[in-house]
């Protein structure tokens, strides 16, 4: 088992290296650079800047220098914001995004799993119809539309909740709902279809034939089996929610990490692009790794080989 996870860990590192390499190459092949701007900069200045940040060196040299610094934990200075390092961005932004994301995940799980279970048990009845209608809205309407509607209703019309900021607990409510809407709907649908499938299995009939109550049949025999696909998608979902969303953080003026994913690219802020990509990739791979461990705990059929 230790050997299996050691192997998985090694493969994770290889994957991470490939992600860094590919992102680096693609990023440098996009026309323009960090110091390209509308205002004409004199050639001397551009040359001096490129020299300062070592951008005139061959690409492979830059790459190995970057990897070297990365291994030391240094993601480099931002090319756009003088005096700020990419480490600062992550250290300042991630806790904010992670807190919002963490609360969102808890909200999503608490809501989606019971909704899915209810819909499956009441298959075809009004409870099922309601859950499925809400879930369909959630997966089809983009988060910024949901956010706008929420702000209009609860902040502007009813004046119950603030329109921006995370200063009080009330500030979290709208961003959490807007951010979690899609995952909530997706997971509720997945939970429903997974549980419905499991409830049709022969071993559920066996459990009923034992004289178990329907509650026991569901909690002891059906749920664990039905949760396996849900756990699978939970890894990427957690990584996605906790590293911040550009749209939601923009709308609610949240100083999180999400903004850097988009701005760094449009600004060709090389070190920031690399930094947030490496950070996200590491986080995602770690989550997938944790999901694998959970698999082994929940399903005895998965062997450590």
């Amino acid at each position: 088992m230790v050997k299996y996870f050691a192997k998985r860990f090694a493969m994770m590192l290889i994957a991470l290296f490939m992600i860094v390499l590919i992102t680096f190459v693609i990023m440098h092949s996009i026309p323009g650079g960090p110091f390209t701007s509308d205002r004409k900069v004199s050639e001397d200045v551009e040359k001096a800047l490129n020299e300062k940040y070592n951008l005139d060196a061959p690409l492979y040299e830059q790459f190995f220098e970057y990897i070297g610094n990365l291994l030391k934990g240094d993601m480099g200075p931002s090319f756009k914001y003088t005096g700020k390092s990419v480490n600062d961005f992550i250290a300042n932004g991630f806790p904010v995004s992670a807190k919002l994301g963490g609360i969102t995940i808890i909200f999503v799980l608490i809501a989606a799993i019971p909704m899915g279970i209810l819909a499956a048990i009441k298959n075809g009845r009004w409870q099922d119809m309601t859950v499925m209608a809400v879930a369909t809205i959630g997966v089809t309407i983009p988060s910024f539309v949901i956010a706008s509607v929420l702000i209009y209703t609860f902040s502007f019309r009813l004046d119950w909740l603030p329109t921006y900021g995370l200063d009080t607990w009330k500030g979290y409510i709208l961003p959490v709902v807007a951010l979690g809407g899609y995952s909530l709907s997706y997971l509720a649908r997945l939970m429903r279809s997974s549980l419905l499938e499991v409830m049709g299995q022969d071993y559920i009939r066996t459990a009923r034939a034992k004289g178990l109550t329907e509650l026991k049949v569901i909690t002891k025999h059906a749920l664990r089996n039905a949760l396996i696909p849900v756990i699978t998608v939970l890894g990427p979902t957690v990584a996605g929610l906790m590293t911040g969303s550009f749209v939601i953080e923009k709308i609610f003026a949240i100083p999180g990490l999400g903004v850097h994913f988009v701005n760094s690219v449009s600004q060709r802020d090389y070190t920031t692009i690399m930094g947030v990509t490496v950070f996200y990739a590491t986080f995602l791979l770690a989550m997938v790794f944790i999901v694998d461990i959970f698999y082994c705990l929940i399903d005895p059929r998965i062997k450590f080989e």
Binding site: D202, Y203, T206, A209, G211, T213, I298, P300
Partner: peptide, 24 residues
């Protein structure tokens, strides 16, 4: 009915491959 199932009347099903819970 639940008191009778398994205690007074028990059942064996056709497919032993799928009639047992794989996780228990």
């Amino acid at each position: 009915m639940r008191e009778i199932r398994g205690e007074k009347i028990a059942m064996i099903f056709q497919d032993p491959m799928s009639s047992l819970n794989p996780l228990i």
